[in-house]
Design a protein around this nucleic acid. Structure first.
Lengths: 211, 211
DNA sequence: TAGATTGTTAATCGATTAACAATC
DNA sequence: TAGATTGTTAATCGATTAACAATC
């Protein structure tokens, strides 16, 4: 498996391919051509073939792609064949929303614990997941094998928490705090900046009216 | 204000500029050069100047950019000088998280109502925002001036709710459901697909290990 | 005036699309 | 074999970076 130098644009599209293939699979479709998939996904067939060929020849001339096989392969590329243990920092609404989202688990992302600074949340559970005090974060990480930390906390404490996570060996952070985390480059960060997303929608509304 | 044909890449970066300028403003910085900003934001100075010049000459040779002025101007480009009334479909954890997020209000996004299909939520409020039954959606939209609908519901009902929204004249949808909404192109959609974001993080973890 | 820094053009780089030979 | 559709190269398009004249 020697994929290297795959462009960000391609990676960004992979989960969407995965979603469409999953739906095709569920509706019993066995094979699909890049042309047919391109119609459904509203991208060019050329792009689909180019994207997939970054990782190997998954198709067959004259036939197309086997839906099940391609679904599994993209899953492997995305690392969904592996189990990932996750913790969530922040047990507010957003943290709870993430904890309650069962779909993650079916893709191998298992939420093992949550952390919050509010003393009154200590000892509670969300969908069976225990909520600990934030002061226990370091000792918890030392005793448990966690790969991913989701940060669903306000920006004020985010940079410091991120540093703690990194010092405890966490290599992947899913960041919902409205700030950039400048971390060592061996630490993977995926940002979800909701306010920026809302602003982009606002821009679209605004620029559309001008036409 | 004749901005047209602005590339998506530029628009995607605008909210980040806005965030950095807001922080500079709050910390009392009055002027900044593209070079200095480039260091802080980890992008090239060239890109900053190119991006800003899509909208007009906001800077001054030999001086740089006035932080306050630039902040205001980008705010106008993003439509943050206007008020946007918003509703949230789905009063689960995610819907509540959005409703509780006060920052949106300070940027002009006012959540006026929430809707859910669970009868027991009817009549409750979230941060003072009333939760109505989903059956009241159409009549509510006829009687109130709403610009944005956030959809924080599972994918099952999403396409149908989106159609209702559009038929009631909604032109901007902030979509958290894990599905694509194929709507008329005068309807603006901003997607937040959390599971795809998590998969990208997983990809990064996975591909990093291979090196 | 001298120094700094923009606005803008030109050069480079990367990503998308088109085309078609290979092949199932 | 004929038809279909991939894998892959070449052409196009767009976005980023570099360079520098304009100018504050």
């Amino acid at each position: 498996m020697g994929e290297k130098g795959i462009s960000k644009a391609v990676i960004k599209r992979l989960p969407r391919y995965y979603r469409y293939l999953g739906e095709l699979k569920d509706s019993g479709v066995e094979r699909i051509s890049s042309g047919e998939l391109s119609k459904r996904m509203q991208v060019t067939a050329s792009q689909i073939r180019q994207d997939l060929n970054n990782f190997g020849g998954f198709g067959q001339q004259g036939y197309g792609y086997n839906v099940n096989f391609l679904y599994e392969e993209i899953g492997k590329i995305l690392g969904l064949d592996k189990r990932h243990n996750m913790i969530i920092i922040g047990a507010g609404n957003l943290g709870q929303a993430l904890a309650n989202y069962g779909n993650f688990e079916s893709r191998g992302f298992i939420t093992k614990a949550m952390f919050d600074q509010k003393k009154e949340l200590r000892g509670t559970t969300v969908r069976g997941i225990p909520v600990y005090d934030i002061s226990q974060l370091e000792s918890y990480l030392k005793e448990n094998d966690i790969q991913i930390a989701a940060m669903a906390i306000p920006k004020a404490g985010a940079v410091q928490v991120a540093q703690t996570l990194v010092s405890c060996g966490i290599k992947a952070i899913w960041n919902f705090a409205h700030t950039d985390l400048n971390l060592p480059k061996d630490v993977m960060v995926e940002n979800v900046h909701l306010s920026e997303s809302l602003m982009r929608l606002s821009y679209k509304i605004n620029s559309c009216k001008l036409k």
